[in-house]
Design a protein around this nucleic acid. Structure first.
Lengths: 229, 229
DNA sequence: GTCGCCGCTTGACGTGGGTCAAGGCGTGAG
DNA sequence: CTCACGCCTTGACCCACGTCAAGCGGCGAC
């Protein structure tokens, strides 16, 4: 009742996409807004969680802290994505670090209330299952990649999968993250990433200027994806 | 009606544990048995799948084939575990290789029929969500481990997590897989695994004889889990 | 404005572990 | 029984990449 129609988290979230507008309104009743600004941490390992968080505006990054204290970026959540499902579904405490990438608005759902909602609208569980399954597949591909390809291969794949746009007849992609974060995502270090990008540029595959990457030779880039036969 | 009571897949499977015995009987109606013997492949990348498979007896290994054609072991399924949920939930084709580790019995559920079941008993979806979420967490921990720890660290962790039993006052674990498979699971090669095990033995941490591993020094083994500070 | 911090790059170096190759051992087939 | 094949181990080699260190440019704080 207090949420302006159309701007609530609920409307845009795939999780609730199966519900009728009236049902969505009901769900919206349970949503509590949450706001964080650039660099603020939203969740820190060990915090116990009693809420499922849905990203409404902005992006957040989810990393895993390993025993050594170093950070490994796992994934970036965009509007419509959720997190904290582990705590909701099993009782487990997730040991992830979640940080706002920019100014962010989130919606928070209390576990108890969400539980009731799921009971009432089983479709929510199915949609949750769908996205978690997708994440699992992606994670398992990452695992395979980490042992099968070298850094060049993974970087090549990453660049190819980036959304691009044409400008003056050139195909240009914009890096969605700081290079150090991309390094972490690819399981390497900023130093190595820097070198590999330089090597690609040297070889005439790409052209890098800040966060803009011009894809010069998609074919040879694609070739680097697979190991030499 | 044709399944001997108590021996059907359905009874032992967590997926259906929330149902009443009568409901389980109904579910059992849809199950089709499937039998494979040692080394036979149950699913090969690219096969399209219209069934969810539940392991009833024996074990199967699930690997991911990378572009280079090499095999990376992802997980081992034991009785009660299921696979093929990706195809069921999203329409995607899983590119996994599934091979019987010994003689295996499986139960197969057609997607269409299973879909109807899930509609009728939403609890099934919730349980599926629960196990997929667990797998995701595990996969993400593996990802973090692959970049944070070295092979020794991962091996140490693997050995520690192994179920053990006491014999003559010694703590002994039995490797549940061929060493080459363990190597794949840990993201390394049989050669390196062999060397690392030898190194642990050398250091007096373990004693290896075939598939039996005597854990001599759990404390120092545990220490190797974390990187040197 | 100036300072300091942070992200990025480049260089030099050391090494973990992958690869190739060879030999031993156990097991199942014939 | 013998053979052959697959698993495991050990040795030698070498290269990709992580680490340490230094220098640079941009940006926000003050």
């Amino acid at each position: 009742m207090s949420h302006p129609p159309g701007t609530s988290c609920v409307a845009i979230v795939p999780l609730f996409a199966g519900l009728s507008p009236e049902e969505q309104d009901e769900v919206a009743t349970y949503a509590r807004p949450l706001r964080r600004s650039t660099g603020e941490t939203i969740h820190r390992p060990g915090d116990d969680v009693s809420h499922l968080l849905v990203v409404h505006r902005g992006r957040v990054k989810v990393s895993h802290l390993s025993a050594g204290g170093q950070e490994r970026l796992l994934r970036v959540l965009e509007p419509g994505d959720f997190m904290g499902e582990t705590a909701f579904v099993t009782g487990e405490r997730p040991d992830d670090l979640v940080v706002a990438l920019g100014d962010v608005e989130l919606c928070s759902f209390d576990h108890r209330e969400l539980g009731a909602l799921v009971q009432h609208y089983p479709d929510i569980a199915l949609r949750m299952l769908r996205t978690v399954t997708g994440r699992l597949d992606e994670a398992e591909r990452t695992i395979a990649d980490l042992t099968a390809s070298d850094v060049e291969g993974r970087l090549a794949g990453y660049l190819i999968d980036l959304p691009t746009q044409r400008r003056d007849g050139r195909v240009v992609a914009r890096l969605p993250l700081a290079k150090k974060d991309i390094a972490s995502l690819l399981g390497t270090t900023p130093e190595t990433l820097s070198r590999k990008l330089a090597a690609f540029a040297e070889a005439g595959l790409v052209e890098v200027q800040g966060r803009e990457v011009v894809i010069l030779d998609p074919v040879r880039l694609e070739e680097r994806t697979r190991p030499a036969p």
